[in-house]
Simulated assay, not measured.
Amino acid sequence: MPLLPQQIAPVDERQAALTDGCLSGHTGALMDYFLALRAETDAALAPRLGAAAGKPYPYGRCAEINSDLFTRLARRVKEPATDVDRTLRDFVSQGGIVRTVWGVLRGQYFQNAIQFGGLYVDVSNDTVVLTKPKVEILPIAESGLVPVRDLAHFRATAESYWGAAIYANHLVPSLAPLLPMISASPGRLRPGMQSACDYMIALMCLDGFRQAEDWLRDGPAPPAEIASAVLASVPPDLRARTADGRAESLEACRWARASGCDRDQGWRDVRVKEYLRTVRA
């Protein structure tokens, strides 16, 4: 089965051998390399990213940091100028896996990182506990990062990490198959739909929106004050058309499954654009 976006790739014998042969003897140089890249990223992001959950940069900015640094890394590997650039280019040219990954770290919080074959490189290690080192490099097997298994796993992590209450998305039925949850984290995150990351969207498609439908059927509706806060940024044409948003959301899942939308990239792209309209509003 193809990997989901940002899912950890299995470390088979080839990846283990490439990691040992190309990277494992250079851990110190790799640490210096990623710390230098992180300094470039901080210089670019810190002036323009405000506080998250009332805490200053880099708190809560693991996605932005990981994405920016990965872009810088790709440019460096494409046009290598240093020994470490060339080491990483050689690793990639021999078939070494380099990909961004996302999941639940050590049962505590969501985290973004970069996988290099059998290595886990967390370039935003200080975005939850600000006193931790900025970069952590470990074998994947020792990292404690695991994929989100299902909606229950996501909800449990969001509740403990964000202090979130999670409700069913009966407010925006057309997006409910992909974004079936509403989260509210007083003093931390604004109420909104979850989760608009590539991994979770692909996970909802994986079973034809069945677990999304189950949650929309059984999960609690958001209370009035949370619903009002979410709908304040939702254009009128995306809101539930009737007073029974639960029924509309359930029907959206059934229609999407029957129509093969779980395999339709165009349909998914339209829904993501609709979601972005709610963010920009």
Rank of each mutant, 00 (worst) to 15 (best):
S195I: 00
F209I: 07
L238A: 09
D214M: 11
A229F: 04
L238I: 08
A196C: 11
L216Q: 05
V234S: 08
D207N: 06
R239I: 08
R241W: 02
A247H: 09
R246V: 12
I226K: 00
E225L: 07
W215A: 03
M200G: 03
V230C: 11
L203I: 05
R239G: 06
I201S: 01
S228P: 00
I226W: 02
A224Y: 00
S233W: 04
V230K: 05
A232Y: 05
R246G: 12
P222L: 06
V230D: 05
S233D: 09
R239S: 04
D207G: 07
D218E: 14
D244V: 13
Q211D: 08
P223W: 06
P220Q: 09
A202E: 09
S195N: 10
G245K: 12
P222R: 02
G219T: 05
R241T: 14
D244N: 15
P222T: 02
C197V: 15
C197E: 11
G245N: 11
E225P: 00
E225A: 14
R241G: 10
A224G: 02
A196W: 06
A232E: 15
P220N: 04
S233F: 09
R241P: 04
R210P: 00
Y199H: 13
D244T: 12
D207C: 05
F209T: 05
V230T: 07
C197Y: 13
R239M: 09
D207E: 03
A221S: 15
W215H: 08
P220Y: 07
Q194G: 02
A227L: 05
V230A: 07
C205F: 00
G219A: 08
S233E: 09
R246H: 09
L231C: 10
V234Y: 10
G245E: 11
T242N: 05
A247R: 13
R239H: 06
D207P: 06
D237I: 06
G208C: 04
G219Q: 04
D218N: 13
D207I: 06
A243N: 14
A232T: 07
G208F: 02
P236H: 05
I226E: 01
R241H: 13
C197N: 15
W215Q: 00
D218R: 11
D244I: 12
M200H: 10
C197M: 09
L216Y: 05
V230R: 07
M204I: 01
L203K: 07
R210E: 15
A212Y: 01
S195K: 08
D218Q: 13
S195P: 00
E225M: 06
P220D: 14
D207V: 08
S233I: 04
R217E: 14
A243W: 08
A229D: 06
L238M: 14
A247T: 09
S228G: 10
S228F: 01
A212F: 02
R241F: 04
R239T: 11
R210M: 07
A196H: 12
R239N: 07
D244H: 12
